[in-house]
């Protein structure tokens, strides 16, 4: 019994490592290919840094990159602003908690392409939304918001409501209670919500295909280069390696920051 239990635990641990490897291995492979002579062959070899040199000389990716950063930043801010009020209210709701959560989470089941099409067809026709940067923001926000809200809810459900009451009792007016007591307690959720908003928007492709209009984001640019078999394609390996490393580093820094704040 005990031995079987231990064996099962070891199996699960191995599976955990296996899954983690599945996530990180492609990034490592991508990094290897980006310094290979012929990345398109799929096998590393003949190592060179020439692709990185041409990437830094090339200009095509810079505008899409800046655009993606801007859009992701706006989506992150929108996610935080829109997730904080309902997440604060949720633990205090007497009725309808489950249906409220379901209402918010169900859109996760809508495939990305369908959502992109919906925004493209209905929003454009019904509400006259012009396809461009703002429709990108809108579709990315619809995509990222449920994740942001979950991240906030995890924190608000754990937060002790008597802390805010204690602050009021000590003489803090409502705004001070919010700034001094509630926001610091919510900070892990805020960071999480912002991170979800940023990363999900920054890497979003299926919805952007429909809602981008003339505006090209970084994933749209990579996709276009890759499908056009352009000469730029080898640079995409370098670009994606750099982006992966940067987002991994950002995530690591945030984890460290959050540990320090909540410990």
């Amino acid at each position: 019994m005990d031995a079987a239990f231990r064996a099962a635990a070891r199996l699960l641990l191995a599976a955990g490592f296996g899954i983690t490897a599945l996530i990180y291995a492609p990034v490592a492979w991508l990094a290897l290919l980006s310094v290979s002579a012929d990345p398109l062959s799929g096998w590393p070899g003949g190592f060179t840094t020439s692709w990185y040199a041409s990437l830094s000389a090339s200009l095509g990716w810079r505008a899409p990159m800046l655009r993606s950063l801007g859009i992701a930043g706006i989506v992150a801010i929108l996610c935080v602003l829109a997730a904080v009020p309902p997440a604060r209210a949720w633990p205090r709701m007497r009725r309808g908690r489950v249906s409220f959560a379901a209402l918010i989470l169900l859109p996760l089941g809508v495939p990305g392409i369908v959502l992109g099409l919906l925004v493209f067809t209905t929003w454009r026709v019904l509400f006259g939304v012009h396809m461009g940067a703002w429709s990108l923001v809108l579709s990315h926000f619809i995509w990222a918001y449920p994740f942001a809200l979950i991240s906030m809810l995890v924190v608000t459900l754990r937060t002790d409501p008597s802390l805010a009451e204690a602050a009021r009792d000590l003489g803090a007016p409502p705004l001070r209670v919010l700034c001094d007591i509630e926001l610091p307690a919510l900070m892990p959720g805020i960071v999480g919500a912002g991170l979800f908003g940023f990363l999900l928007s920054f890497t979003e492709l299926p919805r952007s295909i429909f809602t981008g209009g003339q505006v090209q984001t970084l994933p749209l640019y990579s996709f276009a280069q890759a499908s056009a078999h352009s000469s730029q394609i080898k640079l995409i390996f370098c670009l994606n390696t750099l982006i992966s490393l940067a987002s991994l580093a950002a995530a690591a820094v945030l984890v460290v920051l959050l540990r320090r704040r909540t410990a």
């Binding site: 002790d160 009451e165 204690a166 009021r168 009792d169 000590l170 003489g171 307690a185």
Partner: peptide
């Protein structure tokens, strides 16, 4: 309102600010 009353409470579970 609570924040303008001349009272102070020691709560049952203290409610100290953890941060």
């Amino acid at each position: 309102p609570a924040h303008l009353r001349p009272t102070a409470t020691v709560f049952q579970h203290y409610a100290l600010f953890p941060h």
